[in-house]
Design a binder for these strands. Structure first.
Ligand SMILES: [Mn+2]
Ligand SMILES: [Mn+2]
Ligand SMILES: [Mn+2]
Ligand SMILES: [Mn+2]
Lengths: 217, 217
DNA sequence: CTACAAATTTAGACTCACCTAAAAAAATGT
DNA sequence: ACATTTTTTTAGGTGAGTCTAAATTTGTAG
């Protein structure tokens, strides 16, 4: 049985590696997990011994299939809980991530399957992120950050960054919800900011925000 | 912020002390928490320093008001979660205790208030145990163990022990649910077993079981 | 009142997950 | 090619919560 810390490491490694594509560096992981590089080295050795990742000194770690399946199970739980909190209990979308960080570690397959069933097998969570199924299969969405769109292009919001409560409140205010259509009116070279239209309303959006809105290609 | 271990100690102390009435001994606590006396002594010192309990060497511990309010908050969460699992997700009453042991430690007042509201402010959990309100007020039920009833007496089941899954399956089978009326037909001095009638069905019940069915006085 | 038994505490050690500081390796710039 | 910077690892240590074994206190029976 994996500890809370081990589960969080695997989840972070999975996310940072782009679903296991690339290797993850020690410092990246330390940053993401709010810990120190030395601590990461320790844990990474342990996870490597247990074969959840492969670790090459000074090079980084890659998640194994075994590790991936743990990560996906945790991500599944996180996203199902977030969906439950919003849909069933009436949480706002900026209130759920923190609680889901705790709930994702509850050990009970029965519980998560019942929640999934209760919710009617949702495909995405309140922020637009896809929910892996019980077998760990996840639908990868074709998406890019809003900041990558060219001036004049039209696109649809797929997902938004879920971990920054203030960002989410702001996005709510301007109606930037998954599913909404959006057009890039103009881009400012200088600071990367851009002007967009969402439901015929115009908004100025900073570069920072435009990095956290994912849109269709 | 209290750790999981600290919360579990306070909950056990509260239960073993009969809601704070009597002192709790080191060995009792060790037994209840599945740990060793030496570990209990350590933890008890810590909780005493933090003033959740008062501790007198070789005599035992008593829970303070501060400790009681923590214990009741955890018990509230435990029982609300159990109720949720049974009523909303369709768990059987013997499947919920273990999961609730985990869920009771989730830190979010918003979450538990939403669950309470969603369930319509239930007064008792699936095993008949009263649910403390948000202020930590709990309705103490007038109750005694079935084994204390005299032959011929009639009574109503108030609650049953919730932590033994096999016991619960058995009680389900004989219809021994909270709210059900029951009559003591006969008692066997020798082994403490007794014959009871539940909805005009007769059952032989061992002493052990009769200790875990709580009935009205 | 004393001897033994039972309960409890102390002493010392372990694992987990973390830390700081120092050493070592890799990357970078001239 | 070499010195400097950056990244990573190693070394040694901490606190939480647990353990075993030994010492101490308390309870009990003759
Ligand atoms: Mn989230
Ligand atoms: Mn987490
Ligand atoms: Mn329970
Ligand atoms: Mn617990």
């Amino acid at each position: 049985m994996l500890s809370l810390a081990e589960e969080n490491y695997l989840k972070s490694i999975y996310h940072l590696s782009d679903a296991g594509e690339k290797a993850v560096l020690t410092n990246e992981l330390a940053e993401a997990l709010n810990t120190k590089a030395a601590s990461v080295t320790d844990m990474v050795k342990k996870l490597s011994t247990k074969e959840f990742i492969s670790y090459e000194k000074y090079y980084g770690v890659k998640i194994t299939n075994k590790g991936k399946s743990v990560a996906l199970a945790v991500i599944r739980k996180h996203r199902l809980w977030e969906t439950f909190l919003v849909q069933t209990l009436g949480f706002k979308w900026d209130e759920v991530h923190e609680v889901a960080e705790q709930l994702e570690h509850i050990k009970s397959t029965l519980l998560i399957e019942k929640i999934d069933e209760f919710l009617g097998y949702p495909q995405v969570d309140p922020h637009g992120d896809p929910i892996p199924n019980a077998q760990g299969k996840i639908k990868k969405l074709e998406k890019t950050a809003l900041k990558n769109l060219a001036t004049g292009s039209e696109s649809t919001i797929v997902a938004v960054k879920d971990s920054d409560s203030n960002l989410l409140k702001y996005l709510e205010k301007i109606g930037a919800k998954p599913g909404k259509k959006l057009t890039v009116i103009s881009k400012e070279e200088y600071d990367g900011s851009l002007q967009v239209a969402i439901e015929s309303q115009h908004y100025f959006i900073s570069k920072e925000v435009s990095e956290n809105i994912l849109v269709t290609l």
